[in-house]
Design a protein around this nucleic acid. Structure first.
Lengths: 189, 189
DNA sequence: TCGAAAAAAGGACATTTGTCCCGCTTGAAA
DNA sequence: TTTCAAGCGGGACAAATGTCCTTTTTTCGA
């Protein structure tokens, strides 16, 4: 449930060596905003280190977290394909390092480097593929079952992610999350 | 909320003329299964006509509809990139016509035709982009508000889509959907 | 054209979740 | 060190949703 892309991470590291002059690296502190909903950025980002959350703030004050991402995942690539502001905000959950590939270079790589092109295709396909079972499971099973599933996928989630983020990921209020956690505690250990 | 892809539809029509010998066209009746969760198909499909639903059946008997799709939308493209069974089932909601592009041809087009490659990249980016606001809205607002939104996006949805499908799209029981529809009827006209 | 089967509507009750609180803990900034 | 904001946990009640069931309407094949 914290998504990663080892192949793209590996490719990014070769980029850092070969094309060092054309890319940049930025560091973000915990809770810092990496991208803001509606804003534009002249680059595509790839996470080199750390955990980010990708989320949407609704007009009524609620937030919904799309996914947690770590090494090798792209951010801001959708805006390369369709100009217009970012759909989601992205913020650092732990200290984060981002590799920034300017749109100009991204386009060249996409058009000339078949390997890179395929990595991006697969990365997009992966994001589509992942969302289907996640949302199906989320609406089909109880909150308790969803929490158990997070624990299976990422045992440390309660230690690493703030409660508020977990609630926003599961699409429930913090109160409901606490209640469900208590129920689970009473049932097993 | 019934998704379409005019550019890919246009491209598909030229494919039907130029490469007619290498592609095929299949018709499906209402409710017929086009793809089954877990199964494999040696082609990528593009909808030429009709409306399909793309959904996941969970082990507990519940179904969750990912999206409704019509002209120009792809089905089964995820399985081209990662071998393995289909994540979702696809079924015809109205009579449907599908253009089938064999994986072998799909690969050639992807590698040699920059235009096609870009269309597929944009199509995938579109699917990712679309899901974020949809699920955010769905979990952030009341059922009534979600129904109103469907009406704004597709005024005829109650006439075209079965109630059960609408409920499975919104992630609620048929009972709750009916209740909410009644409330809306009482409020306005 | 009839009859079976599916779809639709909604009543009654149980369960889940949200909202609005309050009090406690913790960590970072003054 | 003190202080204050943010995070955490949970009580009490209200609202939303699910489950189960019955009745009516519609559809479609024999």
């Amino acid at each position: 449930m914290i998504r990663t892309n080892p192949k793209l991470l590996a490719y990014s590291k070769t980029l850092l060596e070969k094309d060092r002059a054309q890319v940049s690296v930025t560091h973000y502190k915990r809770k810092e905003e990496i991208m803001g909903q509606g804003h534009r950025y002249p680059y595509v980002g790839i996470i080199i280190k750390g955990i980010v959350k990708c989320f949407i703030n609704e007009a009524n004050g609620k937030a919904f977290i799309q996914e947690f991402m770590t090494e090798g995942m792209e951010v801001g690539e959708l805006e390369f394909f369709e100009k217009g502001g970012a759909t989601c905000s992205v913020a650092a959950v732990t200290p984060v390092t981002i590799l920034e590939i300017p749109h100009q270079l991204f386009k060249i790589l996409l058009d000339k480097e078949l390997t890179f092109n395929r990595l991006i295709l697969e990365s997009l396909a992966d994001k589509v593929r992942y969302k289907a079972p996640r949302h199906a499971f989320q609406t089909s099973y109880s909150l308790e079952r969803n929490i158990e599933k997070m624990g299976e996928l990422y045992p440390d989630f309660l230690k690493v992610l703030p409660k508020g983020d977990i609630a926003n990921y599961l699409g429930v209020s913090a109160r409901s999350l606490n209640r469900a956690l208590k129920t689970l505690r009473e049932e097993h250990g």
